[in-house]
Simulated assay, not measured.
Amino acid sequence: MTRHNAFQKLLPLVAGLVAAAVLSFGVAPAFAQGNVQAVAMYRLYNPYTGEHLYTSSASELSSLDRAGWRYEGIGWYAPLESSAPVYRLYNPYSGDHHYTTSLDEYNSLVSLGWSGEGVGWYSDDAQGVPLYRQFNPYEKIGTHNYTTSSAENDYLVSLGWHAEGTAWYGLDPSSVGSVVNGTPFMGTSEHSREQVKANLTAALKARGRDFPSDVYAQYGASNVDEFVDRLFEAAEAEGVRADVIYAQSMVETGYLGFGGAVKPEYCNFSGLGATDSGGEPNRFSSVYEGFLAQAQHLRAYAGYAPLSSIIVDQRYGTWLFGRATTVEGLSGTWASGTGYGASILAILYGI
Rank of each mutant, 00 (worst) to 15 (best):
K205M: 08
G68H: 09
P130E: 04
L292K: 09
R88F: 04
G177R: 08
D65V: 10
A293Q: 04
S59I: 05
F291W: 15
E164H: 01
E236H: 03
Y255S: 12
Y90K: 14
Q248H: 08
F7Q: 09
E152M: 14
L256S: 06
G160N: 09
Y54M: 06
Q8W: 01
G332K: 07
L10Q: 14
S115W: 06
P29L: 03
G254V: 12
P47V: 10
F269I: 13
T325V: 11
S213T: 15
D104I: 05
Y340D: 10
Q195R: 14
A247I: 04
Y138L: 15
V39M: 13
E233Y: 02
D276W: 04
A6M: 09
V27A: 03
F185K: 13
A151S: 15
W114T: 14
L345R: 11
A15C: 04
Q8V: 12
Y255E: 08
L131T: 04
G337P: 01
M250E: 08
A274I: 02
L320K: 09
A203M: 10
P92W: 06
E81T: 15
E194L: 11
A67G: 00
H98T: 07
G322K: 09
N223G: 12
P184N: 05
T166L: 01
G220R: 05
F7A: 03
L345Q: 12
L156Q: 14
A302L: 01
S222F: 00
S213K: 08
Y93H: 07
G339I: 04
Y99R: 10
R299Y: 01
L131N: 13
S192H: 09
P79E: 11
L320Y: 05
E236K: 05
Y77G: 05
D125A: 15
P212Y: 04
V179N: 13
T147W: 08
G257P: 06
T338I: 11
T326E: 11
G350A: 14
A261H: 02
N35H: 10
L272F: 00
K197G: 10
S309C: 03
L204T: 12
F284W: 07
Y99D: 11
K140V: 13
S222Q: 15
S158H: 07
M186Y: 01
A32P: 00
V119C: 06
Y255I: 09
R241Y: 00
E289T: 11
A6C: 06
T318W: 04
L171R: 07
D104W: 05
Y266P: 08
C267V: 05
Y138N: 05
K140E: 08
H297E: 10
S94E: 10
